[in-house]
Design a protein around this nucleic acid. Structure first.
Lengths: 382, 382
DNA sequence: GTGAAAGCGCTAACAA
DNA sequence: TTGTTAGCGCTTTCAC
C-alpha cells in the first residue's frame, strides 16, 4: 500500500536537497520559512518537498532547538501512593470482548498494571469543568501548532512521572489544574525551575503564575440577585472549605447577605459533586424546612439540590430559588435551567496557555496572575 | 532557586559517565535496564545519576529509537474548511480579565486565530462519552509510560495537521474517535500507512482495526426489558441514522420488538444530544400521546426525554418507562436514575490502546476488530 | 562485561 | 543568498 522504495523509511532533508539540487541548509531555510532565500530556489525546493513527500523529523528538530511544541496539561490531586486519592469506581483493564478478524487479541497484560488510580481520572471528567479547560487550552494552542499532552498526577509516583516528563524535555512546560488544597505539585514544579501556569491560586502560597476568578464578586452577584428577588430565608451549599474557591465563594456570599441585612446564613459543605450537593440539600432542608433560596457553590451541586428539593415537594423557583456557579453545561441541561454565576473557564484556560507561551518565548520569568470577573446569568431557577 | 552551574543546561549521559568513571554506553545500558552490566558498576552509575540529577533527553532518544512514547488521541469530524463542522457557541480567545503582579498580560494575539472550530471541541466534551474514552485510554497507556496527545480533526486543515503530526513522528500512532459518518480521516490514515485504531466501525469500509460494541444486542436487551415489563405502546428515539451505531441500535430494537409481537414502532431521529432528545420526545408525544415506553439510543437523549415527559405531566416510570443507552454519568445523575444499556467505554478504549501498542510492537500488520457485549443496567426509569 | 565510534535528522554558526 | 560544518544527546553495533 505504501511505497517503501526509499533508502530507509521516510525521506530526509538530505533527500529533498538532492532532489532540488541544493544544500540541506537551504531546504531547512525554506521549510522553516526563513527569509533570504531566492524565490526561484524556494519554488524548486517546495516542489522537491512535495515530490519526495518530505516531513521534517520532530525529534531531530527538537534535539537542536530544545523545543517540542508540546505542552503538558496536568490534572493533579493530593494523593499519596498508599492512598491513591479520592475517586469513584476504578476502571477495569480491557480484556473481555469478542474477537474477530485476522490477528486476534491476546488477553495477556504485562506492565505495571492499573494501580487503582483510574478512579481519579474517571472522577475528573465527570465534572464538565475539565472539558471546558481542555477546550480553552486547545483554542490557544492549536493555532500555534501546539498540542496538549494529557497527564494526571494524583499520587506521588504520578507526580514524579510528570516531573520527569518535563525534565526530559518531553514537553516545553505545564498547565496545571489542581483539585486539592494539599497538592504538592505546584511547589515541586517551581522548585525544579520548570515553566508552568496554574488554574486557580494555590491553597498555600507558591511563586507561580496563575489565572483565577474573582470568586467573592461572583458570590456577591448571587446574593444580590436573591435579595432583589425578595428571598429572605436563604441557605448555601459550599464547596470544599480547604480550597480558596470554596472559601471565597462562601465569604463573598456571607458578606453580601450580611450587607443586605441577613447576617445568619445556614451552611452545608459539599465537595463540588452532584451527589454531595444532594446530601447537603437534604441536611439543609431537614434543619430549615422553610428556606426559600439556596446558593450552591457550583452547578453540579445546584443540580443535586434541585433534585432533592423536588423530591421534597418544593417547586423551583416558586418555593425555593436555586442559584449555581460556573455556568457549565449542567446549568443548561437542568430543569428549570439554572440561574448561575458564570465563570469563563474557556477564556481563563486560554489565558493560562497564553501566559505559559509568553514565559517560554521571553526571558521574562516574572510571576503573573490574571483574575477574571464573573457575571450573573439569569435563567429559570431563580 | 535552581542551580545553573553546569556546562550548559541539563546534565547529559556524558556528565554521568564522567562522574561514574565509565563510558556513555555503560550508563545508557544501566539507564535502560539492559542486563549484562556488573552489579557493582550498576550501583555506581545509579549513584552518579542521582548525584547529577540526570534525566535522559527524550528528543535525542527518539531520534535513534524512532519512538516517541506519545500516542495521538484524535476526535475527528467530517467538516470542511468552508464549513467548520457542526457545534455550539465558539470559544472567545482570552483577553478580558484584570491583571496583577509583576509582568502583566498583553492582549495582543498574533497567530492564525480561532477559526471558529472551537465549537467542535466544546461540543465534544459536552458528551460524557469522551471523558470515558480518555479515562480508558489513559488506564492502558499510563502504566507503560505513555501519554495521549489530544487532537481534534474536524476540518480538512485540521486533518492535514494530524496527518503531518503523525508523519513527523511526533506520535507513534493514533487512536481515533470519529463523530461523523463522512469522516475522511480513517481512510487518509490508512492510505498514509500510519498505525491507528478506531473506536467504532467506520461508516464506510476502511482496512483499519477497531473496537466496537454489539449495538444490536444492546437494543435487544432494552426491548426485552420493556416487553417483560408489559409495555405495549413503545416508541424509540434513535441516534443519527447515517452512523452504524445509530442504525444498529434501531435495527436491533425493531427486530426484538417485532419478535415480541410489535412490528410497528414510532421513531424519531435524534443526534445524541440532550436537546435533540427533547425535541424528538416532544414529536413522539404529539403523535402518540398514549405511549407507555421510550427507548432512547443514548443516555443524553433519554435525559432530555425524561424532562419533556415530566413537563407534559407524565410520570417516569409509572406512566412512561424510559431506557437509555451507554450507562454514562448522565444516567446516574438523572431523576429517576436511568435504566440503561451499558457500553463499557473505558474497557473498550483501553482495548483500543492495547491493539495499537501491539501493532507498534510487532511486525504484525493484521487488521483486527474486537466487539464488546453490552449489558442491561436496571435502575428506576424502567 | 565494557568502551570506542558511528550515526539518527536537523539547525545554526560561520564562510564564501 | 547559499553551502560547509559542527554538533544537539542518545543508542547501538562492533571490537576488545
Amino acid at each position: 500500500m505504501t511505497e517503501d522504495l526509499r533508502p530507509a523509511g521516510a525521506p530526509t532533508l538530505e533527500d529533498v536537497a538532492r532532489a532540488a539540487g541544493v544544500s540541506r541548509a537551504t531546504v531547512s531555510r525554506v521549510v522553516n520559512g526563513v527569509r533570504n532565500v531566492d524565490p526561484v530556489i524556494q519554488e524548486s525546493v517546495r516542489r522537491a518537498v512535495a515530490a519526495t513527500g518530505y516531513a521534517p523529523n520532530r525529534a531531530a528538530r527538537s534535539l537542536v532547538t530544545r523545543r517540542t511544541d508540546a505542552i503538558a496539561l496536568v490534572v493533579s490531586g493530593a494523593g499519596d501512593d498508599q492512598d491513591p486519592a479520592p475517586g469513584e469506581r476504578p476502571v477495569p483493564e480491557a480484556g473481555s470482548g469478542r474477537v474477530s478478524g485476522a490477528g486476534g487479541a491476546r488477553s495477556a497484560d504485562g506492565a505495571r498494571g492499573g494501580d487503582g488510580s483510574d478512579a481519579f481520572t474517571a472522577g475528573v471528567f465527570a465534572d464538565p469543568f475539565f472539558g471546558r479547560v481542555v477546550t480553552g487550552v486547545v483554542s490557544h494552542l492549536r493555532p500555534r501548532g501546539m498540542y496538549p499532552v494529557l497527564m494526571f498526577a494524583e499520587t506521588s509516583r504520578a507526580r514524579a512521572e510528570v516531573l520527569a516528563y518535563l525534565r526530559q524535555g518531553s514537553a516545553d512546560g505545564a498547565l496545571v489544574v489542581s483539585t486539592h488544597a494539599e497538592d504538592p505539585l505546584p511547589a515541586l514544579i517551581t522548585e525544579a525551575g520548570l515553566p508552568a501556569v496554574l488554574y486557580a491560586r494555590p491553597a498555600r502560597p507558591v511563586r507561580i503564575s496563575y489565572v483565577d476568578l474573582a470568586h467573592r464578586d461572583g458570590a456577591r452577584l448571587a446574593a444580590g440577585h436573591l435579595l432583589a428577588r425578595g428571598r429572605r430565608r436563604v441557605a448555601t451549599i459550599t464547596g470544599p472549605l480547604d480550597v480558596p474557591a470554596g472559601q471565597e465563594r462562601l465569604a463573598g456570599f456571607r458578606e453580601a447577605m450580611a450587607a443586605g441585612g441577613q447576617p445568619y446564613i445556614p451552611v452545608a459543605e459539599g465537595r463540588f459533586t452532584q451527589e454531595s450537593g444532594e446530601a447537603a440539600m437534604a441536611r439543609l432542608l431537614a434543619e430549615h424546612p422553610d428556606l426559600d433560596a439556596v446558593f450552591a457553590a457550583n452547578d453540579l451541586m445546584a443540580v443535586g439540590a434541585c433534585h432533592v428539593l423536588r423530591e421534597h415537594g418544593r417547586r423551583v423557583p416558586e418555593d425555593v430559588a436555586v442559584i449555581g456557579f460556573d455556568d457549565s453545561s449542567a446549568a443548561l441541561s437542568c430543569r428549570p435551567p439554572l440561574t448561575t454565576v458564570r465563570q469563563p473557564v474557556e477564556e481563563m484556560a486560554a489565558q493560562m496557555a497564553r501566559l505559559l507561551l509568553e514565559r517560554l518565548a521571553g526571558a521574562d520569568r516574572a510571576v503573573t496572575s490574571v483574575i477574571f470577573e464573573p457575571s450573573l446569568v439569569v435563567r429559570g431557577s431563580a
